[in-house]
């Protein structure tokens, strides 16, 4: 079996862009863009469960985007990313990235969550996509914990 090619500068920039676009699609409620970032059999593991395949991912994220409160004209959240740590080769790589998730509600700006994205990425037909994203809990405020427990 042929050795995989090394991860090039172009590959790394493409993976950085993939990670950045995830946040942009989520914050602008671009569901098609969000889902298309995942490989056809892509997986998301999150605090409430697991989605496998683009149809399940679409249903889960569509539910999150539809859960905005009446009057929310834009997402009350922003996903602010740190520097990704990327390791792998020209076909597959892993990445770890911190994300701050500030929230604005009723005029108040808070920081309810600081999470880590742990990604497995794969290059399919020359394009990097997520094979798996684990949304790993980091810091979660008490207010957010009680909100999700309800």
């Amino acid at each position: 079996m042929a050795e995989p090619t090394p991860l090039t500068a172009q590959d790394r920039l493409d993976v950085i862009n993939l990670i950045a676009s995830y946040a942009a699609y989520l914050d602008t409620a671009d569901l098609d863009g969000y889902v298309d970032n995942f490989a056809p059999g892509g997986v998301i593991e999150h605090s409430a469960g697991r989605c496998e395949g683009q149809a399940e991912i679409r249903a889960w994220v569509g539910g999150l985007l539809g859960a905005r409160r009446p009057g929310d004209t834009i997402s009350p959240y922003r996903h602010v990313l740190g520097i990704p740590l990327i390791e792998g080769d020209g076909e597959r790589c892993s990445a770890r990235t911190y994300v701050l998730i500030p929230q604005q509600r009723d005029g108040e700006l808070t920081l309810p969550m600081v999470l880590t994205y742990v990604d497995s990425c794969v290059k399919l037909d020359g394009r990097w996509r997520f094979a798996k994203r684990i949304i790993q809990p980091g810091l979660v405020s008490a207010a957010r914990r009680s909100e999700t427990a309800r």
Binding site: G82, I83, Y98, L100, V114, P137, G138, L139
Partner: peptide, 8 residues
């Protein structure tokens, strides 16, 4: 986790 170093 109790503390995070977030780097710009």
């Amino acid at each position: 986790p109790q503390l995070v170093h977030f780097v710009g």
